[in-house]
Each structure stands twice: as structure tokens, then as C-alpha cells.
Design a protein around this nucleic acid. Structure first.
Length: 795
DNA sequence: GCACTTTGTCATATG
DNA sequence: ATCATATGACAAAGT
């Protein structure tokens, strides 16, 4: 029976996996919730395993089952529940990235971009999806239709793997528009930087070999359209600040993504896009004006949506200085929530835009975080034609140079501290915000990165810096603790395995009892005695007793052999094997060898033997000797007391019938006392059985709950790391774009704006202002009057 | 013979 | 108050 059950379970699991792979979602919950109480109630609230009342209510939920709550037949129910639960867990069966199913669906849709970009961005996949993704990818070519199909996935193990900004050849062959067309040298460089970060995170560089990408890039060159686009892009950069940025490019496939940006990939983000993302993430609130006008020193880069009318430098509002540190966890959760909302919006917009993105893609927040493409990129209408694109590598770090050496600590420095982790405070406390340093260079979570990492006295800078620092530190810590995304699946398995409870269903403690009692349930359900089957009493009275009583009360007999003929543990079946002494040892008869009183001889046979013995009596005696060996103490007592009905009746009859039964017979006080004891003990015996089963079920359900929670934890950790990485990539992109801005900005006299002296401030209306830094700029203002420039970012 | 499990029973709590 | 049930604890028997 055990093997049969196990076989059935495994078969069911395999079948469900098969259905899942072909796209059929098996929602066991729908079947389960109709008749059975939700399994998660064990986690979320009182359970039948906890509360007695709900346990009794199970009877009401088992329509058609008719299993009495007291019946051990409930084991069938529990077994079913457990099996269904196992099946239900299949979609999260220790495979953290079960989104792979989505990936397969994408494969069918021939929408390579969305397949590669949305469901599993390569960069997030490299670490995030973990080994199992790779393995699955490797293991699924047969299911994907063979090698003839264009390779839309990233064979991470292949030597010429196509990853990152380079679209696989198959993609190009499918006329996806030269996926990498829009990638510029800067993009590639940036991607390379980001890859290095990923390498820092543990991703092997070989996963996204630059040489491979270069090679693939070169392979694209022969495409005249591609090269033209690239050239156009580069030329646009040469001609001035390309603040509008190129069309967002899917990092892996290189194909343009009109409506969304895959943060998990190396997407080309314009500065404005980054800003919009940041605005969505950290709403700036109303723009505040600097009380101190700086005249024409200000350069304003305004968004066309809300043309900036501000003529002065935006000044961040005063902030309380000694605010407590943000609750980073809460902070992160806020960010996550906002990001999820953003992702939802983008998903909606993407679906509305009729993008080629596959709708079947699971909108998993991780990896598919997106933002609306900026319809109004930063305008190039700035007198930057003379921009010489100086080497920004030296100047740029000064942008983020902390003003620690600044004598006057500006209020903005102190306003970095938010009073709480609630993101709503960000709305209220951040007016015009200098976001120049929001996207800081990657913080490598080292203690000395304060000095090594450029720092800006900016609210968001500090906000993100602190949070990201800690988050990334947590990330690194998590990495150290084995939470690398590549090991996420292993983590889950480890988490599961370190449970003190056995999670193996084949070794589940419920299995033996389930299998045992499942037969009892079958026997019970097939019982011809409705009364007794409803009571569900199994294995209390014996056939020996029934046989003995049958002579006195024929109505009792008849049902017993059917009642438990399949039950190994019940004593009744022994009556069918009276002549089989080799089966004596089968029964687990816990008959107590309690010394009986003089009125209760140990072997009632002795009483019988006292009478006349015919040969027929001797045969009966022999069989009863055998039966007595398996009779319970109460049964022997009952026989000794010549109780005129079976113990089963004594135990299982309803109170009324039981009283009627007692009234029908004229019984002595001793007999009545014994009968009541028998009934009490029998009831208690069943109660104990049920109690133990419930206890077992409780343990199993708790075990399942722990398993589920651990899976959720691992999944959330994975998502968290992916988001952290995405944000960091955004910061990188922002840094790069700011670098470009500063490298090409010139005042009226043609002098550049040193990033060390100026910073970008972003208003709520989308305007971008170049404001002098408070400390260093104050001195600079003496020698040079900053000019106010307004950059109309109309495209 | 020992450790562990299973089962029955008792005492008690609870509804 | 009584009864039915649940459950912890214990012991006996089995493995």
C-alpha cells in the first residue's frame, strides 16, 4: 500500500509537471477549496488540527464522505489533503524560478525580445535565476522544438554565448530589427561596467564575455542598417548631449523596447528616463525655490511636459538635522512597493501599446521592472555644439565628491536624514531635490567606501546611499551566507533540508498511518452497518467477542467481517484467520496482563472449562483460546462478565441507543459498571487515536507551512537582490548620464561646469537645474558668475 | 538488552 | 451538573 501510494503520488507529480510544461495550469486549489478547508489555514489561522470545533466541522465539509470526525477514516481525507498539497506545491517545487514556464511560452510566440528580456533578463538571470535556470535551459531544448529553432535563449554555457547587449543571431535572422542597433559605444562601455559589477556579485565574467559581445557586435556590423543606426547614434552623441538617450534597448537582445525598460538588463536609459524613474520611486514633491537667487548662473534643464519657469536655483527644503536613521528595511519595502506599482503601470502600458511583449509573461516584479519611456527626452536645444566631450573620467568623480571638506555644512546635508522609513515622508520632505548623486557609483559595501565612494550632500544621495549601502551590504552578506542568486535554488533546498522535520513524503510519518487507516476507511465506508461506520470505530471489539455474543444476540454478527477485513491493525480480521497460527504475530495486541480480580479470571476459558465439555465445545474452546490471545482486556472482562452484547456496541452506540440497550437487559451493577468502563475506555481509545492523528497532521501541516515560508523567504530574498541590482544599475546609468551632461555643458563663456562645483537638481516638474554646490561653489561664485541656463528638453 | 514506536488507559481540561 | 470529547502523561507491548 505504501508503494502504491508513493507510486501514485510520484505519478501525479510527474503528470502535473508535464501539464505545467505544456502550459496547462493545474490549479489544485480549485478542487481543494471546494470541499476541503484551505490548507493554508494552518498558517493563517486556526486549523482543524488546532481547534476541536473545526475538526468536527470537517465532517460538514466532507460532502458525501460521511466520515465521522471520530473515525480514523479521516486519514483518507488527510492523505488526500496531503497529496493534493504536494501537487499544489509543484509550481513552487524547490525551483525558485518556476517562471521558466513563461519562458517556454515566450519561445512559442517568437517574440524574442520579450522572451529574453521580460521574463528573464539576462543579467538578472545570470545570477538571479540561479543554476536551475541554466540547467533548465540546457535541459529543455528538446521541449523547445529542437536545435533547428532559432536560439532565443542564452546558452550560458556555450562558448559563443550571446548575452547582454548583443542579440543572438537567431534573433537577427528573425528580422527583429537589428536588435543591437541602438547600442552605442557608451552603452557598451556602460554595460561592461555593469557586468563588472555583476562579476563582483559573483557572476562569472565568462557568462557575458565582452569579447563575445564584441564579436557579436562585429557580426552585426555587416548589416548596413545596423551600422547605420550605430553610426547615427554615435554621431548624435558627437553632435551634442544626447540627453534624450537612445531608444531603450533590451540589454540582451539589443532590440528596442518602446514602452518599458528592463532594469535587469543593460538597458540604455536616458537621463530623463532615470529621472522619471526616480521621480516615480521617490516623488520629489513640490519644487522649492532657492531663496537666494543666483541669477544667470543657473542652468535649467526643463522637461517639456512642465516647462520650468523657475529662474532661481532650487533649494531643498530645510530638514531636521538629527533625525533618526531610516529603517532601512522599511525603506526598502517602500521602494519595493513603489517599484511594483511602477512595474504594474508599465505592464499595463506595455500591453496597451501593443508591444510584441508576450502577455503571458508573468509580471514578476523581479527582473521586469520597467518604466515608461520618456516621451520627452531631455532636449538637446542647448548651446552645446562646442562640446568637446572631454575625458570625463577625471572630472566626473568630482561631481560626487563629498563636501566633507566644506566648511559650512549645508542644510541639505542634514536633511538627508529622514525621520522615518516611510516613503510618504519622502514626498513631504523632498522638495526640489538634487539628484545628481542619487545614482552613485556602485557601493561595494566596504567600510571604507565612504572615502572611496563619491558622496554628495544630497537627500536622495544619502537616502539611497545609506539604504543601498546597507542593502548592498546585506546583499553581500547574503551572498556570503550563501544567498547568491545562483545558489537560490540550492538555498531553498538547504532551507528545506535543514528542517528538523522530515519533508520526504515517502518518509512522512503520516504515510504509515495514512496507508494503514486508508484501508480502514475503505472498510468503514463499505460497512453495512451505518451506525457503526458513522462512528468509525475500528478495531475495538473482536470477532471473537462478536462470535461469542452472536449466539446470544444474532443481530450483532454479520457486519464485522466486512467491517475490517482489510485492516491489519484491527483485531476483527483475526477471526478470518483462526486457523492460521502463523498470523498470530501480525496483530499488535496491546492487551494488558493486568491481574484481574477474583471475579475476573485472566482466562474466561477457565470458566467455560469448568462446565461440561463436549468435543464441539473443545473445538470452540480452542478457537476461543486463540481469540483470547488477541482479545482486549475489556473484551475478556466483558466475556467474563457475560455481557450480552459486543464491546463495539457498548462503545459505538449513541447514547440513547446505548441506554436502551442497557435497559433491555437486566444487568447487574458489576456488569453495568464494566459496560460503562468499556464504553468510556473505548471512547477514549478512539479519541486518543484521533488526537494522535490530529497531532500528526498538525506537525505535517506546520512542516508544510515552514516549507512554504522558507520558499517565500528565498524567493523574496532573490527578488530583493535583483531589485538592488537594478537600482544600482540605474545609479550607474544616471552617473554616466550626469557625466555626459557635465562634460558637455558650457556656460556662455564656454567654460565647463566642473562637477565638483555644480550639481544637478531636479524639480518636480521635470526641470533640471544646474546649481552650484553650496560650499565650493560659494567661493567660485566670487570669481565667476554662474549662468543660468535652461535646457529645454523638447525633442 | 536497549532504544524507539505504537497503542491503550487514566486523569484532567474543555465545551 | 452531566456528558462527550480532547489531550497530556504513563505504561505495556511490539519492533
Amino acid at each position: 500500500m505504501l508503494y502504491l501510494k508513493k507510486y501514485f503520488t510520484e505519478g501525479l507529480i510527474q503528470f502535473t509537471i508535464l501539464l505545467s510544461l505544456i502550459g496547462v495550469r493545474v490549479d489544485v486549489d480549485t478542487y481543494l477549496s471546494n470541499q476541503l478547508p484551505p490548507l493554508r489555514e494552518i498558517i493563517l489561522g486556526p486549523s482543524s488540527a488546532y481547534t476541536q470545533t473545526q475538526f468536527h466541522n470537517l465532517r460538514n465539509t466532507l460532502d458525501g464522505y460521511g466520515i465521522h470526525p471520530k473515525s480514523v477514516d479521516l486519514d483518507q481525507f488527510f492523505t488526500t489533503r496531503r497529496l493534493l498539497n504536494e501537487v499544489r506545491q509543484l509550481d513552487r517545487l524547490s525551483v525558485p524560478s518556476s517562471e521558466l514556464n513563461t519562458w517556454l511560452v515566450h519561445r512559442d510566440s517568437e517574440t524574442v525580445v520579450s522572451a529574453g528580456g521580460r521574463s528573464s533578463p539576462g543579467i538578472t538571470l545570470d545570477n538571479g535565476a540561479g543554476l536551475e535556470d541554466i540547467n533548465n535551459i540546457d535541459a529543455t531544448p528538446a521541449m523547445r522544438g529542437g536545435g533547428g529553432a532559432p536560439e532565443s535563449t542564452y546558452d550560458l554555457n556555450a562558448a559563443d554565448s550571446s548575452l547582454g547587449a548583443v542579440a543572438p543571431e537567431g534573433n537577427q535572422e528573425q528580422g527583429s530589427g537589428g536588435g543591437n542597433d541602438d547600442l552605442t559605444k557608451e552603452d557598451i562601455d556602460l554595460i561592461d561596467i555593469l557586468w563588472r559589477q555583476d562579476i563582483d556579485l559573483g557572476a562569472g565574467r565568462e557568462v557575458f564575455s565582452y569579447s563575445n559581445r564584441q564579436k557579436d557586435t562585429e557580426e552585426e556590423k555587416p548589416n548596413p542598417q545596423d551600422s547605420k543606426d550605430v553610426n547615427d547614434e554615435q554621431e548624435s552623441w558627437r553632435n551634442g548631449i544626447n540627453l534624450q538617450g537612445s531608444q531603450p534597448v533590451d540589454g540582451e537582445t539589443g532590440e528596442s523596447i518602446p514602452e518599458q525598460v528592463i532594469l535587469g538588463s543593460q538597458t540604455s536609459l536616458s537621463l530623463q528616463e532615470c529621472l522619471r524613474l526616480l521621480e516615480a520611486t521617490f516623488p520629489f514633491g513640490e519644487e522649492a525655490e532657492f531663496p537666494v537667487p543666483v541669477g544667470n548662473q543657473e542652468v535649467s534643464i526643463s522637461n517639456e511636459e512642465v516647462p520650468s519657469t523657475s529662474q532661481g536655483l532650487t533649494l531643498a527644503p530645510q530638514m531636521p538635522t538629527a533625525e533618526p536613521q531610516l529603517d532601512l528595511e522599511q525603506q526598502w519595502q517602500d521602494i519595493m512597493a513603489i517599484m511594483e506599482l511602477q512595474a504594474m503601470d508599465v505592464n499595463n502600458s506595455a500591453s496597451n501599446s501593443g508591444n510584441a511583449s508576450n502577455d503571458t509573461a508573468e509580471p514578476t516584479a523581479a527582473g521586469t521592472f520597467g518604466l515608461s519611456e520618456n516621451p520627452t527626452p531631455i532636449n538637446q536645444d542647448v548651446s552645446l555644439h562646442q562640446a568637446s566631450l572631454p575625458s570625463c573620467s577625471q572630472d566626473f568623480p568630482q561631481i560626487f565628491r563629498p563636501q566633507l571638506d566644506s566648511v559650512s555644512v549645508t542644510p541639505r546635508t542634514s536633511m538627508l536624514r529622514l525621520s522615518s522609513g516611510n516613503s510618504t515622508n519622502i514626498n513631504s520632505t523632498f522638495g526640489a531635490t538634487n539628484l545628481t548623486g542619487v545614482f552613485l557609483p556602485p557601493i561595494n559595501s566596504s567600510s571604507n567606501n565612504v572615502t572611496s565612494t563619491p558622496n554628495l550632500p544630497d537627500p536622495f544621495t544619502t537616502l539611497l546611499e545609506e539604504s543601498m549601502l546597507d542593502e548592498i551590504s546585506l546583499l553581500d552578506l547574503a551572498m556570503e551566507e550563501g544567498f547568491s542568486q545562483a545558489q537560490a535554488s540550492q538555498l531553498e533546498e538547504e532551507l528545506d533540508s535543514d528542517s528538523g522535520l522530515s519533508l520526504d513524503s515517502s518518509r512522512s510519518p503520516a504515510s504509515p498511518s495514512s496507508s494503514e487507516t486508508s484501508c480502514s476507511s475503505a472498510a468503514s465506508s463499505s460497512s453495512t452497518s451505518a451506525n457503526f461506520s458513522e462512528e468509525g470505530a475500528v478495531g475495538y471489539s473482536t470477532d471473537s467477542e462478536a462470535a461469542a455474543v452472536e449466539t446470544e444476540e444474532g443481530a450483532v454478527g454479520g457486519y464485522q467481517p466486512e467491517y475490517s477485513k482489510l485492516c491489519r491493525m484491527s483485531f476483527q480480521d483475526l477471526s478470518q484467520f483462526n486457523g492460521l497460527p502463523q498470523l498470530d504475530g501480525i496483530s499488535h495486541n496491546h492487551t494488558y496482563n493486568v491481574p484481574l480480580s477474583s471475579s475476573f479470571p485472566e482466562h474466561p476459558d477457565l470458566l467455560l472449562s469448568a462446565g461440561k465439555k463436549t468435543s464441539r465445545d473443545k473445538k470452540l474452546q480452542a478457537s476461543q483460546d486463540l481469540l483470547d490471545k488477541h482479545a482486549s482486556r475489556d473484551e475478556r472482562r466483558a466475556r467474563a462478565m457475560k455481557i450480552p452484547f459486543s464491546n463495539e456496541k457498548i462503545v459505538n452506540l449513541p447514547v440513547e441507543e446505548f441506554n436502551e440497550l442497557l435497559a433491555k437487559h437486566h444487568l447487574s451493577e458489576a456488569q453495568l459498571a464494566l459496560i460503562r468502563d468499556i464504553r468510556r475506555r473505548g471512547k477514549n481509545k478512539m479519541a486518543a487515536q484521533n488526537c494522535r492523528k490530529r497531532k500528526l497532521e498538525t506537525i505535517i501541516n506546520l512542516e508544510q507551512g515552514v516549507q512554504d515560508l522558507r520558499r517565500d523567504k528565498a524567493r523574496l530574498l532573490k527578488e530583493k537582490m535583483e531589485f538592488i541590482r537594478s537600482i544600482r544599475q540605474l545609479k550607474q546609468k544616471m552617473q554616466s548620464l550626469c557625466q555626459e551632461v557635465f562634460s558637455q555643458l558650457r556656460d556662455e563663456e564656454g567654460r565647463p561646469f566642473p562637477p565638483s562645483e555644480y550639481c544637478l537638481q531636479y524639480g518636480a516638474d521635470g526641470s533640471v537645474l544646474i546649481a552650484p554646490r553650496s560650499g565650493a561653489a560659494a567661493t567660485q561664485q566670487q570669481s565667476r558668475k554662474p549662468e543660468k541656463k535652461q535646457k529645454d528638453k523638447k525633442k
